[in-house]
Design a protein around this nucleic acid. Structure first.
Lengths: 161, 161
DNA sequence: TTTTTCGTACAGTTTATACTGTACGAAAAA
DNA sequence: TTTTTCGTACAGTATAAACTGTACGAAAAA
């Protein structure tokens, strides 16, 4: 009866915690998996996870791999244990936020670069083509570039704190 | 030939701009639709959009409705025009960021509330149940609550600037 | 060595999401 | 009034994502 209480409460926490994790662009499975690993303090095997979450071992394998790539989970070695063991990173704020902020910075920087390239072509085009249409598109494009610059700057600020 | 050039360049911008917009949790259709509306400075009808984007009018209708709810698009009235006209909000940074940040604050606040409720139950449970299991879950839960509080605080800070 | 057990590649299936076309009420036009 | 045209509800279809089960190479156990 005690164990059931623990499972029950763990489940409730998982449901809520997963919702937040999904906002960091993890899939539902990845989110639940991380929440579960985080709440189980001990390192777990793929079979442990599969049993506890009622999903296939294949799903656990792919899910854990994603979490490893995001540095949210670590593979752990234990003497005499043949199966792979995985453990959730405990520094929630630092790891989730770092990954997330970097993702934004990378993306906006990259998109901005592409937009600046397009702008070069557009400016070139305007020289030989005396239509007002192109000028209006160019105005909008510059605003879009500004927008990207501002977003990137904002996320860079967040990194400081 | 000039019009084609404009379309060509508009298309390129749309592709890049859409990627960024999708990061604000808009669907691909919503993102492309907004980008298109933004680049066309004139208010457009559902039929205009449908033709230009090669998607059904129904899609345009639902897409525009989402954008309206997010305050990214405004319905515009024009004398003698029977069809509904829609126009993109031009204050990109302000509108996108406001909506996004508020979404995070709302979500984290709400989830934190749920977690605190669970914690109350858990503390109560610990009183009658002298297992160490529950204590360990409680520790984790408190860390998760801290995490939510920190995320909420960070997004609140962003709001200032 | 052979046998067992691990993790995962891959193909197929289920489930969710995006999208379309028809139909219909509301309102303008005839 | 009747007719046309608007926007959208709704049901059905296509496309994408999540998930499963079998199969197999690698490595430990026998």
């Amino acid at each position: 009866m005690q164990v059931n209480k623990k499972e029950e409460v763990t489940n409730k926490i998982m449901v809520e915690f997963s919702k937040t994790i999904e906002m960091f662009d993890l899939t539902p499975l990845e989110a639940r998996l991380f929440a579960f690993l985080y709440l189980s303090e001990k390192p777990l095997t793929l079979d442990d996870m599969s049993d506890a979450m009622g999903k296939s071992k294949t799903s656990m394998s792919t899910g854990v791999r994603s979490l490893l790539e995001l540095n949210l989970v670590t593979r752990v070695w234990k003497k005499g244990e043949r199966k792979d063991l995985f453990q959730a990173n405990t520094q929630l704020f630092k790891t989730f936020m770092n990954t997330y902020i970097n993702k934004w910075i990378d993306a906006t920087k990259h998109q901005n670069h592409s937009l600046v390239e397009i702008n070069k072509l557009l400016v070139e085009q305007k020289r030989s083509d005396f239509t007002d249409d192109l000028a209006s598109v160019d105005n909008r494009l510059n605003d879009i570039i500004d927008f990207h610059t501002q977003v990137e700057a904002l996320f860079r600020e967040m990194k400081q704190d």
